[in-house]
């Protein structure tokens, strides 16, 4: 199961990158994908049974829309902060609780916080994220979590757990 998922993933990326229909191209792709699959196939998907559940993909698409909206908003807010005189900032570090356990989910959450409005992941420990906030509104962990990543953390919990 693990091996099949990794092989399909690698071969798909190979086809997308090369994007041609030669026979030689197919043979080279299959050989290279098989080689990498044999080496790394055992380790990669931590929960292979999750890849067959369609609701996770639906939740992930929902997450993508939330993320895109937040990112575009973040860019306009950042443009405003850069262009106004004497940048209107009040930076500080807050800590927020982290409920996700899956490593891939944690990476995606940390990256989406970095691209969300005014926040930036600095450090990650077992239960907490340390977030640099460019305009600190509250230092209370629970309120800060609600304001920074409440929605995306809930959706990612649906996707990965």
């Amino acid at each position: 199961m693990n091996y099949i998922i990794v092989f399909i993933l690698l071969f798909g990326i190979w086809k997308i990158i090369t994007w041609s229909n030669d026979t030689g191209n197919y043979i080279a792709g299959i050989l290279v994908s098989l080689f990498i699959t044999i080496i790394y196939g055992r380790e990669f998907p931590y929960h292979p049974e999750h890849t067959l559940q369609p609701r996770r993909y639906l939740a992930f698409i929902k997450f993508l829309f939330v993320f895109l909206y937040q990112m575009i908003k973040a860019n306009f807010i950042m443009a405003y902060r850069i262009l106004s005189p004497g940048p209107p900032i009040k930076p500080g570090v807050v800590k927020i609780p982290l409920h996700l356990k899956s490593p891939l989910g944690r990476i995606i959450l940390a990256n989406s916080i970095t691209l969300a409005p005014g926040t930036f992941t600095m450090d990650i420990t077992e239960d907490y994220l340390y977030v640099h906030w460019i305009y600190v509104v509250t230092t209370d962990p629970v309120k800060a979590e609600e304001m920074i990543c409440g929605k995306s953390q809930k959706i990612l919990k649906e996707v990965f757990e």
Binding site: M71, N75, M78, I82, I89, G118, F120, M122
Partner: peptide, 23 residues
């Protein structure tokens, strides 16, 4: 790039450059 020049310290600079340059 403008944010890289205008922000006061390394973290704010990283914020400005990461967000804007990624988009």
């Amino acid at each position: 790039c403008l944010g890289l020049l205008r922000m006061p310290d390394v973290y704010c600079r990283l914020q400005a450059s990461t967000k804007c340059v990624t988009l």
